[in-house]
Measured scan of single mutants.
Amino acid sequence: MDVFMKGLSKAKEGVVAAAEKTKQGVAEAAGKTKEGVLYVGSKTKEGVVHGVATVAEKTKEQVTNVGGAVVTGVTAVAQKTVEGAGSIAAATGFVKKDQLGKNEEGAPQEGILEDMPVDPDNEAYEMPSEEGYQDYEPEA
């Protein structure tokens, strides 16, 4: 019985440690998101679009440190934060509304985080759909 109880105690310690790591990862992701939003706020009209992409990228980098179902929630929060940063930029006159959601080359930025393969159960990952990809044929 002692062996059984000791095993359960060790398992509990492992769960607590994993929860603490997840909590730490979420806190880091939130900190990076805040950094990115402050970065966007300090940019001029020309830099705002690039700044919004930076927020998304920093958040995406930190999301990889967070495991399990938390990833889905962090990704949703990050996307809403990026959308909010863009709205703030438009409201303050840093950028025109028609410039939001495009990178410096004018290509749409939507789907940055949505296409990231995420499995809350950590069982399997699927690649994003290939609808947006084109076949590449090298020139002879």
Results as ranks from 00 to 15, higher is better:
A30R: 03
G51E: 01
V16C: 06
Q134C: 10
A69Q: 09
L38V: 15
G101Y: 11
K10C: 05
A69R: 15
T44G: 09
A11F: 14
K6I: 12
K80D: 01
M116W: 15
K97D: 13
A140T: 14
V95Y: 08
V55H: 01
A124G: 09
G41I: 06
V16S: 04
E57R: 03
S129Y: 09
G132Q: 12
V71A: 10
P120Y: 09
K21W: 04
G86I: 08
V40F: 12
K45Y: 13
M116Q: 15
K34H: 11
Q79P: 02
A124K: 13
Y39S: 11
V49I: 13
E130Q: 09
E57M: 08
E13R: 01
K10R: 05
E35A: 06
G132T: 05
Q62D: 07
G47D: 03
E28Y: 07
Y39T: 13
V49T: 11
E28F: 05
E126M: 10
K10I: 15
G84N: 15
Q62L: 07
F94W: 08
A90Y: 14
V3P: 00
A17V: 03
K80F: 15
T44R: 02
K21Q: 05
Q109N: 10
T59E: 01
V82H: 06
A11C: 00
K102W: 11
Y133W: 12
G93W: 13
P128G: 04
A91D: 08
G31N: 11
S129T: 07
T33V: 14
K80V: 03
V77T: 05
E110M: 09
A11Y: 13
G93E: 07
G132R: 06
K97L: 00
K102L: 15
E123V: 12
V95N: 13
E13N: 13
A17I: 13
G25V: 02
K43Q: 06
E20D: 03
G36M: 04
A107E: 13
E28W: 03
G101V: 14
K23D: 00
S129G: 15
P128V: 04
V118P: 05
K80L: 13
V63T: 04
Q79V: 04
T33Y: 04
T64I: 15
G86Y: 05
V74M: 06
P117Y: 06
E35L: 15
K23Q: 03
G51L: 10
G84P: 02
Y136Q: 08
E137I: 10
A76M: 02
A18W: 14
Y39M: 02
T92H: 04
D121K: 13
T72E: 10
I88M: 07
D119V: 13
S129V: 00
G106W: 13
I88A: 06
P108L: 08
Q109K: 10
T22M: 10
E61S: 08
N122L: 11
V40S: 00
F4A: 01
M5Y: 01
I88N: 00
K43N: 00
L113R: 13
L100K: 02
M5T: 01
A76F: 04
A107M: 03
G36C: 02
E28Q: 04
V3C: 09
M1I: 00
G67L: 07
G93I: 11
A78H: 12
D98E: 06
Y125F: 11
G86W: 07
T22H: 03
Q109P: 13
E126C: 10
V15M: 11
E83D: 07
E131A: 12
I88K: 02
K60F: 05
G51H: 01
G106H: 14
A91W: 14
V74H: 02
N103T: 09
V82I: 12
T54F: 15
Y136N: 06
T59S: 06
V26N: 00
G67Q: 11
E139F: 11
V15N: 00
E114D: 15
T81F: 01
K6N: 07
E130M: 05
V26K: 00
Y125V: 13
F94A: 04
A19P: 00
K97Y: 10
E123F: 02
E110H: 04
E104V: 03
G67M: 01
G67A: 10
P108E: 15
T33I: 07
G68A: 00
K96M: 15
A17Q: 12
D2G: 01
G67R: 01
K12M: 05
E28A: 04
A124D: 03
D98G: 09
F94G: 10
D119L: 03
E46L: 00
G25L: 14
A89F: 10
V55N: 01
G41F: 12
T22L: 07
P128K: 09
T44C: 05
E46V: 15
D98H: 07
A19D: 01
G84A: 03
E105K: 07
